[in-house]
Amino acid sequence: MNERVWEILLDSFGKILLKGLEVTLPLTIASFAIAIVIGVVVALIQVANIKGLKQICRFYVWIIRGTPILVQLYVIFFGLPSIGIVIDPFPSALLVFGINTGAYASETIRAAIESIDKGQIEAGYCVGMTYTQIMARIVLPQALRVAFPSLFNILISLVKDTSLASSITLVEMIRQTQYVIARTYEAFWLYLEVGLIYLIFCTVLTKIQSYGEKKLSSYGGQ
């Protein structure tokens, strides 16, 4: 590694990191927020066994988990324009990652809800609460704590999966790196550099996760 490479790396680090903060991070956080909302709703519909809607939810999870994200991105970004629907790269990515991650989150949340002892639901009924009240006040708060580590796992995957959005022309960290490579031909070092930046992002998230787990460590610290 010579001085020229060093300069390229130092020069590009800020640019790539900036795209990370401007694009990758907002895309990840916004998609994850959408995913959690979808996940909770889809999980509750299945647990409550609402006829019709439940089948739709199963179908959604089946389709999304059974096809590659890349295909989903292509369908939205390159496919929809042929029927007259044109969506910009960022909203396309947001839509796909939100819906995709929502399917995985829903399964995690569903399993967590089912792990909560049914006796508490019966007790809720016996003190006069409705199903909705019991879910909102007793079951979901506990389930989300149970699901927290798995949901965080999904979030960490999502940070890296957003790199796929480079394939629909979104200028996030990978695409920014590729621009630099096109000018400098230092593919090896620059890909290592962007990998390092992803690693930094994920390390920070991992720290947040262990802090969160400690904070949430169960009611009254079991």
């Binding site: 006796g119 019966e122 007790a123 016996c126 609460m129 708060p141």
Partner: peptide, 26 residues
């Protein structure tokens, strides 16, 4: 009212909240 063999207390609520939940919410 019902008292269960396995107590079935709301695990995310304190003793006091367990008792008041039915009053406040229901």
């Amino acid at each position: 009212a019902f008292v269960f063999q396995n107590y079935n207390l709301f695990q995310n609520k304190t003793a006091l909240q367990n008792v008041t939940e039915g009053l406040i919410v229901a």
